[in-house]
């Protein structure tokens, strides 16, 4: 009889935990799946058909963010031919938060340039992967980073689908993650465009409210039939990004990852992550209780036995 009761009780307890977990999961999922960025958030539309690879944006970034001296002058175009580990083109680094790469695309005589920087996702994976909350998505649209709380685990570097955050490996005592913050402290906070966007001679980058830019991007595609691929990269990718791209050639030809899907990356692990706090907080108390209940009989029995003796 005792045994039977305990089994039933255990079953009930587990079912309760599971139900609780489900409730939490569905609540969290519905709360965040509809988030498409702050409505008043800013963004930048990069029209790659306009970029001529002058690297002025790189120079502007270097100046604005007071980055260290570059390895080569910003008017040295040999950087476009650089090949790094694994045959990669240049990537953002602790010394350059934005870079421009050159692509030769079949069927196009002229090279096509692509500017790379943090895309400032609506639901940033760097932010969600960071266990000390060093990242913040500001209402203005920027994804900023607080080096004071960073412990240097570099999970964000692995988590970022665009391979953006870099690490100051050169610093022995205080290495930190380095990435584009959309000039948040000096410009964006005051409603001004990032330095790179303002510096571009050909206005490759259009700065504005993200919602306006999506309209403007589609308008540009409509008004110039045949000029653009009918897609704004970043409008929906990984839940939408503040920086978006227009291109005249398929995005995959320019090294864009077109396999990321439109769901924020956090969605892949959200259900699992919702259970973690439950396991850590409810289970110890619950099973400690079970243990106490299960061993109570022994304690009582021992009492009886000693009385008998």
């Amino acid at each position: 009889m005792d045994k039977m009761n305990r089994r039933l009780f255990l079953k009930g307890g587990l079912a309760g935990t599971a139900l609780g977990a489900l409730g939490l999961v569905s609540k969290n999922a519905s709360a965040s799946s509809g988030f498409s960025g702050y409505s008043e958030g800013f963004g930048v539309l990069v029209d790659l058909t306009r970029c001529i690879g002058c690297r002025t944006c790189e120079a502007a970034c270097n100046k604005e963010q007071q980055l260290p001296e570059p390895d080569k002058p910003f008017d040295d175009f040999s950087v476009f031919d650089e090949v790094h580990e694994g045959g990669q083109k240049r990537r953002t680094s602790e010394k350059a938060y934005t870079i421009v790469n050159k692509y030769k695309v079949e069927g196009h005589d002229k090279p096509i340039f692509r500017k790379v920087q943090c895309n400032h996702c609506n639901e940033p994976t760097c932010l969600t992967s960071c266990f000390v909350n060093a990242y913040t998505k500001t209402p203005e649209g920027a994804v900023t980073y607080n080096s004071k709380v960073c412990v240097g685990c570099r999970t964000c570097m692995i988590a970022c689908p665009f391979y953006i955050p870099a690490y100051s490996y050169s610093s022995v005592l205080n290495p930190v993650v380095k990435k584009c913050i959309m000039c948040y402290d000096t410009r964006l906070k005051f409603g001004r465009p990032p330095a790179c966007a303002q510096s571009c001679p050909r206005e490759t980058m259009t700065f504005g409210k993200r919602s306006d830019l999506i309209y403007q991007g589609h308008q540009r595609i409509r008004l110039n039939p045949g000029k653009y691929v009918d897609h704004i990269y970043g409008e929906n990718e990984v839940g939408g990004t503040a920086w978006m791209y227009l291109s005249s050639v398929p995005f995959e030809d320019l090294g864009f990852d077109t396999t990321l899907g439109n769901a924020p990356i956090i969605n892949n692990v959200k259900e699992f992550l919702a259970i973690v706090p439950m396991v850590l907080t409810i289970w110890p108390a619950l099973f400690a209780g079970f243990h106490l209940l299960a061993t109570r009989k022994n304690v009582n029995n021992q009492g009886h036995e000693s009385e008998k003796k």
């Binding site: 120079a59 001296e69 002058p73 910003f74």
Partner: peptide
Amino acid sequence: FFHSGKHAPKH
């Protein structure tokens, strides 16, 4: 601005 000419990187 461009770190060019006489402002070119020394190293």
